[in-house]
Design a protein around this nucleic acid. Structure first.
Ligand SMILES: [Zn+2]
Ligand SMILES: [Zn+2]
Ligand SMILES: [Zn+2]
Ligand SMILES: [Zn+2]
Lengths: 161, 161
DNA sequence: GCGGGTTTGTTACAGTGTATCACCGCCAGC
DNA sequence: GCTGGCGGTGATACACTGTAACAAACCCGC
C-alpha cells in the first residue's frame, strides 16, 4: 500500500478500517451487517480499485452466491457513510483511507501500472477551484478530481507487485 | 449556451465548430467523413451532454439506422482530435468549445438543472495540483476534473430551458 | 406474538462499451 | 485495367455496469 503525506489519520490496515466502520455505524444507529462487512473487506483486501462484479465474484463461493445487486446496495451504503469511494473513471471502488473533514475535496491518484489508488487533498487546489468557479458564476455541489499516472514506487521499479 | 470568462477563442456556433473540425482534419491528413460530421453535429446540436446511444438514435431515421458502435468509433476519432470531450461522471460527450493549449487541463462545469456543460481552465488550479502531485511523488499522465452544480443562469431563474 | 421498517435474495431489465468479421471505397503499384 | 492493401462502415454478438420491482427474511419496539 502506498503512503501519502500532508496529513495523518490514514488507515492502511484493513483491521483498523473495519473497526472504524463498526464504530461509525454504531454511533449513527446504523447496521454494519455481515454483507456490508464482507463487501468492505473485499474492497479493502486488494490494493487496487475493485469493480462491483469483481467483488461479487470474490464473495461468491460454491453454494453461496452473492449477486452484484447486493454488492451495489452495500457499496451505496458504505459510500453514504464515507467508508468507500467510487472512482468514476474506472467504474470501481476503493476503501476510504481518511477521515475527511466535512466539505473537503479529495484527489484520487490512480497508478496505471500497479492500479493502486491513493487519496490526497490540497487546500491550494480547492482554493483555486473555488475562485475559478466563482468567477464563472457557478455554484458547485459535488466535484470529482481523478489523476491517472505513475506512483512513486512504480516509476522507480516499473511494474505491478 | 452558456459563456464563461477568462479566455476567448470559444465556439458557441455549430457552424464554426464544423469549419474548425474540417480544417483540423485536413491539416492532419485525416478524413472528416459524413458520419463523423453527423456525429459532431449531433453532439454540438443540443446544449447538453449527449450519450452515445442518444446520438445513435438521433442520427437514425426510418430506413437508415446508425448503430451505437459506429457512433463510438466516430466519437473515439473526434476525441483523439480534441474535438469532443467525454464526461466521465455522466457517460456522455460534449463538443470542445476551445482550442486547448497542449497539456492544458480542463475543468468541466456541469449544470445539474439545465444539463449544460461549460469548460474552464485555471493556471491556479493546475499549479496547485502539480505541486500536490509532486509532493506525493506521483507523475500524472491524464487528469479529469468535473464539477457538478448550478450554473449562473439556472441559479437565477431556476429550471431547464 | 405482532406490526412496521430495514436488509437481502432473486429475477429481469436498461444502459454503456467492445470484439469480431464482412463489406465497401479508395488509392498505390503492377 | 487489375489487384492488393488500408481505413472506414455495417452488422451481430457479447461483456460489463447499474437499476427496478417484488418477495422473503430479519430486527426491534410494542
Ligand atoms: Zn477518503
Ligand atoms: Zn503504482
Ligand atoms: Zn475543450
Ligand atoms: Zn444551468
Amino acid at each position: 500500500m502506498h503512503r501519502h503525506d500532508g496529513h495523518d489519520a490514514c488507515w492502511t490496515d484493513a483491521g483498523d478500517m473495519l473497526a472504524r466502520a463498526e464504530a461509525t455505524c454504531r454511533e449513527r444507529g446504523l447496521q454494519f451487517t455481515p454483507l456490508r462487512r464482507e463487501v468492505l473487506e473485499a474492497v479493502a483486501g486488494s490494493g487496487k480499485a475493485q469493480g462491483a462484479y469483481d467483488i461479487a465474484e470474490r464473495l461468491s463461493a460454491p453454494g453461496k452466491r452473492v449477486a452484484p445487486v447486493s454488492v451495489y446496495r452495500a457499496l451505496d451504503f458504505l459510500m453514504e457513510q464515507g467508508l468507500v469511494h467510487r472512482i468514476a473513471s474506472r467504474n470501481a471502488f476503493i476503501p476510504c483511507a481518511h477521515e475527511h473533514a466535512p466539505g473537503e475535496g479529495v484527489i484520487f491518484l490512480i497508478c496505471r501500472s500497479c492500479g493502486a489508488v491513493d487519496e490526497a487533498s490540497s487546500a491550494d487546489v480547492e482554493g483555486g477551484l473555488g475562485r475559478t468557479l466563482e468567477r464563472a458564476g457557478f455554484t458547485p455541489t459535488r466535484s470529482i478530481l481523478e489523476v491517472e499516472g505513475d506512483c512513486g514506487l512504480c516509476r522507480g521499479q516499473g511494474g505491478a507487485p
